[in-house]
Design a protein around this nucleic acid. Sequence first.
DNA 1: CTGAAAGCGCTAACAA
DNA 2: TTGTTAGCGCTTTCAG
Lengths: 342, 342
Amino acid sequence: MSRPTIHDVARVAGVSLSTVDRVLNGRVGVREGTQLRVAEAMRTLGYERNVAAANLSRRRQYRLRFFLPSGSNSFMRGLEDRVRERMAVAGRDSTVIEVTTVPPFDAPALAAELRGLCADAVDGVAIVATDATAIRVAVQDLRARGIAVVTLVSDLPSSERQHFVGIDNVQAGRTAASLLGRFCRWRPGRIALVAGSMLVRDHVERRLGFEQVLRAEFPDQAIGATIEGLDDQDIVEERLRTILAEDPGITGIYSFGAGNRGVARAVSGLSPDRRPAVVVHELTHYSRDALLDGVFDAVIHQDDAREVDVAIRTLRALADGESPDGAAERIGVEVFLRDNLP
Amino acid sequence: MSRPTIHDVARVAGVSLSTVDRVLNGRVGVREGTQLRVAEAMRTLGYERNVAAANLSRRRQYRLRFFLPSGSNSFMRGLEDRVRERMAVAGRDSTVIEVTTVPPFDAPALAAELRGLCADAVDGVAIVATDATAIRVAVQDLRARGIAVVTLVSDLPSSERQHFVGIDNVQAGRTAASLLGRFCRWRPGRIALVAGSMLVRDHVERRLGFEQVLRAEFPDQAIGATIEGLDDQDIVEERLRTILAEDPGITGIYSFGAGNRGVARAVSGLSPDRRPAVVVHELTHYSRDALLDGVFDAVIHQDDAREVDVAIRTLRALADGESPDGAAERIGVEVFLRDNLP
DNA sequence: CTGAAAGCGCTAACAA
DNA sequence: TTGTTAGCGCTTTCAG
């Protein structure tokens, strides 16, 4: 009726509680035969350890640390807010969370921070990775010191991070093309691309996915001019204005970096009937307003609150030596229109 | 440094553990003055109860029960699968879950089941509601017996259910219009509507939202014929075929009931260049295939796995007398294209 | 009205 | 190699 406890296991195996505890936790100093008897008892009883009780007894604390880029990027600031919200209530799950911000795109700075971490002060870290060798090495170091590592939002492939919490950016690009292609279907033309920096892996992936789908499925839409806005709204605005003035055949815009405010300003200058369909990334205060004003048609989004939660759960599981449940914790590419805003 | 415990509170207030416990749990038999001293101590220490320890001590079990419609509706069967997945691992959170299926749209049957529930066998129930007075009364009864009640997927407004876990269907309809309007923007025509039954509240709401947006924002698209498919794929297929044959000006189809297979079959009979844009509800095995085949353009979805999780968390919180965190647990209207499928 | 003591399921010294 | 014992933070008898 109620779940079996170590007492039951001990009784059935004919040993003491401590012995059960030892084999349960894979500690040394138990004769092979005894181990087998205990394991057997567990199996027949269908024993499952009560994690809450174990944590209570052990006074277990999960000490986690988030490394986020500093700067004015709205998405990152939102992400930080979400982390701080979790910080405030993390005590309930016996975990303490800390945040460190580091200059964006500054691999040496991040690597230095990571190197400074002490294994008996932190159980796991979540990092918004910059794709650099220094970071890969730092991650390898952390793992060697027994610290769990997940990447958040931006991945670091072929490193020793144990998990990536974020969206598939190729899929995001494909989705954008799928939307824009349909939005412009009966009106052949060119779609302008606004990148942040093609040096950032996410942006390259988004563009790749976009081109794949647009080429294959929407031959009446060509890829027009591509501008690199460096995630700066003013640069984006100015270049985009120029392009739009030069080419009246632009039917759509896909912006896959930051600088949404620049896109909004450039587009809202146009007369409504000439306005192209616009798809951008990340739902923020600004992109939300642009959706509501009818300046943007769709926003491709990743759920930052969910990403933070998943990162926390994943790090806790990893710290306990469990393997996180990938499927359940997947972060999807979300699509927002004016009408399904949260 | 570590969180204060009732020991600390007791010491500061100059009382025993039991007294702290009594005021903590609002039990009777504590002099007013003592109560205040204890409350004061809690405040100054910033005491927060350790729920895990409390549940351990109390050997608390959350006993929850889901009532789902039986029948072949793919979405409901998927929902049931999700509940059963949770059942299997619920023990870890000291909760036991049971599922009861009842004939769909059969209010008396559901009401009878609910009436049979015993308060000392169940702490909370989640029901996929049928909008009927008998159910409202049954819910009132459950609440009177101290059982927590949430509605799932389909709400029962102005009843005593404590929470609704599901999407806003007006918003879903608006989103569909927003998509279809854009998909057909440069090609004036008529959009055909496929309802399940206009007797079901969800469907009425979806249609309402759809009309609102289509009328206001996409005047070049009229609302064409509306068919009532009774959630039966064969009926849907036949009627839709008729309509499509009669009216070559149909640019889009919005199907907001079940019967997706019927829609897919009717549409795939058309030559590709005459094919209307198609938006349907609920991502299932079938709608997924239709998306991949390019027969459907978009699917409006609600995340059933998430709904089940949220329902469980909400019921647990309600059973503890807490008020669930509405904002964090909101279920959004999701949009899937071929390219952002999970 | 208040307090002492036993115990929830598990872990961690410390003995044996 | 194994067992005994005292907690973790809280609840719950049962006395006082």
